[in-house]
């Protein structure tokens, strides 16, 4: 006999329904951009040239997309996932932003409270980013070019933004869960010793699996 699926709460059901509609809408909007450009400027590209470029990037991008959907969905919650995948910049912005908000609100992904906090955090982050990029494009583009120019005094701040971001975010966890933290960081470094340019989306999958596997082992051995 077929197993009956457990019913989700009405809130979750409505989030998934709305999320699917918005995501498919976003896909339409996204594909509409090159179509509109080609129609307006009568500039349909040669398909074999596009295909040549796609062959180089698709295996990486589509492979990473599968890993990202599997990795981020449990961390971001339903609403957060639908929103984050449409608004982009997940690894370097939406995901750490949601983790920080969950930590501040003292809840976790997978709980309904966590779902709410994660969604609000990602939504606010998307709007803030949009406002900053829009203001930058319309008002500060010439000025920002000078600010972030490799010769600018402020350029290192942007070059090393990821160590700054994840160091600050990781500190709280390192302090509270130092036993859990050692294994995934060491695993990440060991993988990079053999493949230093590995894409972060792939490396992240490795460290996540090692971290959860290590935590289960430590629980069994009563080390944590």
């Amino acid at each position: 006999m077929a197993k009956r699926k457990e019913k989700m709460s009405p809130y979750y059901e409505s989030v998934h329904r709305a999320g699917r509609i918005w995501t498919l809408g976003a896909l339409g909007v996204l594909l509409g951009v090159p179509v509109a450009i080609c129609l307006r400027f009568n500039a349909w590209p040669e398909m074999d040239a596009v295909f040549k470029a796609l062959v180089k990037v698709l295996p990486i991008y589509w492979g990473t997309a599968v890993i990202e959907v599997l990795t981020y969905t449990p961390m971001l919650g339903a609403g957060g996932t639908y929103l984050a995948f449409v608004t982009g910049n997940i690894t370097n912005l939406k995901m750490p932003c949601a983790l920080n908000a969950l930590e501040n609100a003292k809840t976790r992904a997978g709980r309904e409270e966590g779902e709410v906090i994660s969604t609000i955090s990602i939504g606010v982050s998307a709007i803030t980013t949009t406002v900053i990029i829009t203001a930058g494009v319309l008002l500060f583009a010439p000025f920002l070019g000078t600010l972030t120019d490799p010769d600018s005094v402020f350029s290192p701040a942007f070059t090393y933004i990821l160590p700054a971001l994840f160091g600050a975010l990781g500190a709280g966890y390192l302090r509270k869960h130092w036993r859990l933290s050692i294994l995934p960081v060491v695993a990440g470094v060991v993988v990079l010793l053999f493949s230093p340019t590995m894409a972060v989306g792939t490396l992240l999958f490795v460290t996540l699996v090692v971290s959860i596997g290590g935590a289960l082992l430590m629980l069994k051995l009563k080390w944590v």
């Binding site: 990795t71 983790l99 990821l162 994840f166 869960h177 490396l203």
Partner: peptide
């Protein structure tokens, strides 16, 4: 609590590892 923390740490660890021993495609950072 432990599994939730481990999942967070797993993600953060990738970026910390890259800051310790990562190489970028263009050599910047």
């Amino acid at each position: 609590d432990v599994l939730s923390a481990a999942a967070f740490i797993g993600i953060i660890a990738a970026f910390i590892a890259r800051a310790i021993y990562g190489k970028t495609a263009d050599g910047v950072g």
